[in-house]
Simulated assay, not measured.
Amino acid sequence: MQAFEVEIDQDYIPLNDLLKITGVVDSGGAGKALVATGVVQVDGQQELRKTCKIRPGQCVLVDEAVEIRVVAAGASE
């Protein structure tokens, strides 16, 4: 399983943008399409909202192959 830790300096990041910046998909549109297939989970629950607000402390799992943990900027130091 691939694992990423993404630092954000805002309150949240839209799910489709998170998938794009980690390289899981090539574009925000591809991220929206991936979420629509039902293979994305946020904190263990299936997520179908393409622009769901992902906040620090949350974990995104894509098809049980990619795990993305979101942390607040400066929290991983």
Rank of each mutant, 00 (worst) to 15 (best):
M1D: 03
M1H: 09
M1Q: 11
Q2S: 12
Q2D: 14
Q2G: 00
Q2V: 13
Q2M: 11
A3T: 13
A3K: 14
A3S: 14
A3G: 07
A3L: 05
F4C: 07
F4P: 01
V6H: 08
V6Y: 05
E7D: 12
I8Y: 01
I8N: 03
D9I: 05
D9G: 15
Q10C: 08
Q10P: 00
D11H: 10
Y12S: 15
Y12N: 12
P14Y: 03
L15V: 04
L15Q: 00
L15W: 02
N16A: 12
D17T: 11
L18Y: 06
L19C: 07
L19D: 10
K20A: 02
K20Q: 08
I21H: 06
I21G: 04
T22R: 12
G23E: 02
V24R: 08
V25T: 10
V25S: 11
S27I: 11
S27W: 07
G28W: 02
G29F: 07
A30W: 00
A30Q: 15
G31V: 02
K32Y: 02
K32T: 01
A33T: 05
L34V: 04
L34T: 07
L34I: 06
V35P: 08
V35F: 04
A36L: 12
A36H: 09
A36P: 01
T37K: 13
T37S: 12
V39A: 13
V39H: 08
V39F: 06
V40D: 00
V40Y: 03
Q41Y: 11
D43T: 04
G44R: 13
Q45G: 00
Q45M: 09
Q46E: 11
Q46D: 09
E47L: 08
L48H: 04
L48A: 05
L48N: 08
L48I: 06
L48G: 05
R49P: 00
R49G: 04
K50L: 00
T51Q: 09
K53Y: 03
K53F: 03
I54C: 01
I54V: 14
R55T: 14
R55D: 01
P56V: 10
G57D: 09
Q58W: 03
Q58F: 04
C59D: 04
C59G: 00
C59N: 12
V60C: 08
L61P: 01
V62C: 10
D63C: 05
E64G: 03
E64K: 14
V66L: 04
V66A: 07
I68F: 03
I68K: 13
R69G: 00
R69H: 05
R69N: 04
V71A: 10
V71T: 10
A72V: 02
A73C: 06
A73P: 01
G74T: 10
G74V: 09
G74N: 11
E77V: 15
E77G: 15
E77Y: 14
